[in-house]
């Protein structure tokens, strides 16, 4: 039977852990609020852009710009998968979900090679150990996420694609659905899918006037579209990360509370038993 002091020490240890998990939960909650706001604010731009692009893409042939290129022209260049994970752990299955999705994506490719572009420390470490073809990596960008980060990634991705070193580019990240729910999405980034992002048949009536020419506008619009898609994915992932961490830490705090209750109950029982035993000893000692 463990001594009273041992149990008391354990209770104290669990309580200390609980304090940490509680604090982490609060921090995640406040960060989540900010990240969530950013996601919501960033959505209109992505939507409008998709809308404008759609109207434009519907009127030009796919051959007009390399980023629109048809799927049949891929050849045997590998698929580039951009994996967005978190920099830190302690957020439930957040990171393992996205790496798992990436691994099953690789299996689905049926022999076609897959190269990686890794965003976030956790995903980078995971794939580094696996000796895969890594084309790009960056970490420690969350927390001070700017459009420039997305721009940098977009530049690499577009370069790989245009130089035919990647036949297709996909993006895997955690989407922020609700605070309790994150979902891993794998979506195609390049070539830009037809009808990307918006409802079909939403094209504005009539043709546009272009200033300057349609080609020039397309040439500027498409890279920006890629940037914005990546930026949105990063923001989604950040919000999802904080949400996942908050939920995980909440569960941990609750488990710690249960444990403290159990231990306290046990400790009281042990103490009672000890007292009873002492009384018996005293009583039986007095009789003789």
């Amino acid at each position: 039977m463990p001594s009273l002091i041992d149990i008391r020490r354990r209770v104290r240890a669990v309580r200390a852990t609980q304090q940490i998990t509680k604090a982490m939960k609060m921090v995640a909650a406040s960060r989540l609020r900010r990240a969530q706001e950013r996601v919501v604010n960033a959505r209109p731009y992505a939507q409008r852009m998709a809308h404008v692009l759609n109207g434009l893409a519907a009127r030009v042939e796919p051959g007009r710009h390399p980023l629109l290129g048809g799927l049949d022209a891929i050849g045997d260049a590998p698929t580039l998968l951009v994996v967005v994970s978190a920099d830190k752990g302690l957020c439930g299955s957040f990171n393992s979900n996205v790496t798992k999705a990436a691994s099953s994506f690789v299996r689905e490719q049926q022999g076609r090679a897959v190269a990686f572009a890794l965003v976030g420390r956790k995903g980078r470490d995971y794939f580094r150990r696996r000796r895969v073809d890594i084309r790009y990596e960056c970490a420690q960008i969350f927390g001070r996420l700017k459009l420039d980060h997305a721009r940098q990634i977009a530049r690499v991705v577009i370069e790989q694609f245009v130089e035919a070193r990647a036949g297709r580019v996909c993006l895997a990240y955690n989407e922020f659905k609700t605070v309790m729910q994150q979902r891993v999405v794998v979506e195609q980034l390049l070539p830009i899918p037809r009808g990307a992002g918006t409802e079909a048949g939403n094209a504005p009536p009539g043709d546009y006037l272009y200033e300057p020419s349609a080609d020039e506008i397309l040439a500027r619009l498409l890279p920006q579209y890629v940037e914005v898609q990546i930026f949105r994915a990063l923001l989604e992932s950040e919000a999802a990360e904080h949400a996942a961490r908050m939920t995980a830490m909440d569960a941990a705090s609750r488990n710690a509370a249960d444990m403290i209750d159990d231990l306290t109950l046990y400790m009281n029982k042990v103490r009672q038993a000890a007292i009873t035993r002492e009384i018996i000893e005293v009583v039986s000692g007095a009789r003789t």
Binding site: V52, G55, L56, P204, P205, G206, D207, Y208, L209, Y210, E211, P212, A214, E216, I217, R220
Partner: peptide, 10 residues
């Protein structure tokens, strides 16, 4: 002004 022809410009 309102009623402008559809235009896409950089």
């Amino acid at each position: 002004l309102p009623g402008h022809t559809p235009l896409l410009a950089t």
